[in-house]
């Protein structure tokens, strides 16, 4: 047996990664109705709680990257537009993108009174639907926990491409070095191996987020610990 033959047999013996990478299907299945979709993306079904948590996310943006009334903003993984519904009133135009068309259907209903919004279904991981140098701010909140590391980086480098020079980016995730993050980790650990959902939350570290932004080309990179105990990485595309 030579090494080439063994390598071929080894390749054939490998199992597929499973459903975690099949984001479109995983999230479309959780959009049967608005209540199910709301629980999937926000753990709430009532609008008041949804608006309150949205305000936390917007505050995080305001105090880290800033929001201007003249900003063209893109949210990666907007779900049912929890944040966009409120943020759209504070910027010039809000674009919401999501890989799940089902989520966007609910988002469209919730955004009926928000004329300066556009929803775009992503064909796959990445932002190839958008042109380069177009946005002032690209952000992605409470999404990284559901993505594999390669896909997290894919969105960071795509954000770099579509931001205009001087544009800002914001990405967050939970981290283990926080009470909430550790509890989330323990909750995941308690799920039996064969029952782990494909979208189970997984943490990020400071080093991981800084590396993504640095490798993508961002400058002025800063890491924030937010009051919500999320870890946020922000950066700016060089002029």
């Amino acid at each position: 047996m030579n090494i080439v033959d063994a390598n071929v047999r080894w390749q054939k013996s490998m199992s597929s990664f499973g459903d975690r990478s099949d984001y479109k299907n995983v999230w479309n299945k959780q959009t049967e109705d608005l209540d199910v979709a709301s629980l999937a993306v926000a753990s709430f079904t009532d609008e008041a709680s949804m608006d309150l948590t949205a305000q936390y996310s917007i505050d995080a943006l305001r105090f880290t990257v800033g929001i201007s009334s003249t900003d063209v903003v893109l949210e990666i993984g907007c779900g049912i537009a929890r944040v966009g519904k409120i943020l759209s009133s504070a910027c010039l135009h809000w674009f919401g993108s999501d890989i799940s068309g089902g989520m966007l259907r609910h988002a469209a209903t919730r955004l009926q009174k928000c004329p300066n919004t556009t929803l775009v279904e992503l064909a796959t991981v990445g932002l190839q639907e958008f042109p380069r140098d177009a946005f002032d701010l690209v952000y992605c909140t409470t999404v990284f926990m559901h993505l594999l590391e390669w896909d997290r980086y894919r969105y960071v480098e795509e954000a770099f491409r579509i931001l205009r020079p001087g544009g800002r980016c914001y990405f967050d995730n939970f981290h283990l070095d926080s009470t909430t993050g550790w509890n989330l980790f323990l909750a995941g650990a308690s799920i039996p191996l064969n029952q782990r959902p494909a979208h189970i939350s997984m943490s990020s570290s400071r080093g991981e987020l800084v590396t993504y932004l640095r490798k993508a080309g961002f400058e002025g990179i800063r890491i924030y610990e937010l009051p919500s105990e999320l870890l946020a990485a922000v950066g700016r595309k060089p002029n």
Partner: peptide
């Protein structure tokens, strides 16, 4: 005006 122009470009691209 500049950002409105950019938003329109995104729409045209879409």
């Amino acid at each position: 005006r500049e950002t409105e122009f950019r938003a329109n470009i995104v729409h045209e691209f879409l």
